[in-house]
Design a protein around this nucleic acid. Structure first.
Lengths: 186, 186
DNA sequence: TGAATTATACCGAACGTTCGGTAATAAATA
DNA sequence: TATTTATTACCGAACGTTCGGTATAATTCA
């Protein structure tokens, strides 16, 4: 069998960047192919169902990253809650390149994207809230308090990414991460 | 002179909704014209410079709404700070239809929109922060504290709109407005 | 009538998608 | 080992459709 020109991981990451920067409608097959290192027709060999399937693969890739690098950490009771929080914030900062890059969930959550990926995006946000709420419980908060903090952490990350990007001011993102820290551990 | 078929205000509001829901790339001229109640060519009569000009008009319309309905209120020293805050939150809730609708700044702030409207979006966010920071001063906070609260209010609104829309859960938006209240007046 | 507004028809370019064919490798055969 | 065969990966070219945009004619009203 002929070997692939671009490995799957590298391929998805190239596609991911285009969707994150341009959104679903803004990401053209030509640019997707270019950034992926393949021709347009070859993309259709890898993803026979086309653009929607590519978006889905990108979303799945993000979901796996979060599960491996964030959620598993947040749920690891062998690590003290304070340290878990610290590490989680550090990985979130890494994920969004210190606030210089937006979130794929936001990029794909305009109306056209929601019609295709609505359930996946909603599911991912629910997972974020759930795992941060779990951390809240480990910090000793009540279930209600913890759930609220889970939601606040998501709102802060999403909001600060929007504002930081629009204003070219990553300090807002960095500050928001600090506020999430204080939300749990003060 | 022949009267217009669709009045300017109504026209802009129709165009506004399309850009807010679909983003810049996702808003096609055919749909813009349809929702505006005009044909495409008639849109070009009203906006000879095309789509960019339409987006700019929509953005300006939003800016004026904010100035008239929010910023003037926030700066009105004849009203007690607490009441000003309360009224401001109420108008924000109205603006975003209790969290059921997103913010045009977010919709137009993907890469393609930022290249066209970057300065306008940045300016509008700065204005939001400035006026809420001013309110913070009136609440007796230091300049530094007030500025931080201004930024937090913007982050909370933007973030909660994203999450509320993606999760079809307007409670998150409502809660976030309550958190902004507590941020200033507790 | 004359000017303004709207509508029809159209344009080149770009869109997502498809297809026929070629390149590259592994497996099978001689 | 050398050659053929099968399988998969890739790509150029073209598809029909829609894009943003533009002529030009018809309509409307001062």
């Amino acid at each position: 069998m002929r070997p692939v020109k671009v490995e799957n991981k590298q391929l998805i990451e190239g596609l991911f960047k285009v969707f994150r920067e341009k959104g679903y409608e803004g990401a053209s097959l030509n640019e997707l192919a270019e950034k992926a290192g393949l021709k347009k027709a070859s993309l259709y060999h890898r993803f026979p169902e086309g653009k929607k399937q590519i978006g889905m693969a990108v979303l799945l890739h993000s979901s796996e990253w979060l599960h491996t690098n964030l959620y598993q950490l947040l749920a690891d009771k062998n690590i003290a809650a304070t340290e878990r929080l610290e590490m989680a914030l550090s990985r979130i900062s890494e994920l969004y390149n210190q606030g210089k890059e937006t979130c794929i969930l936001r990029s794909l959550s305009m109306e056209s994207g929601m019609q295709i990926f609505g359930e996946e995006i909603k599911g991912e946000m629910n997972r974020w809230i759930k795992y941060f709420a779990q951390l809240g419980l480990d910090f000793g908060f009540t279930e209600e308090e913890a759930l609220k903090k889970g939601k606040e952490s998501l709102v802060k990350v999403q909001g600060s990414l929007i504002v930081a990007n629009a204003m070219s001011d990553t300090d807002i993102f960095v500050s928001s991460l600090a506020e999430i820290r204080e939300l749990f551990d003060k």
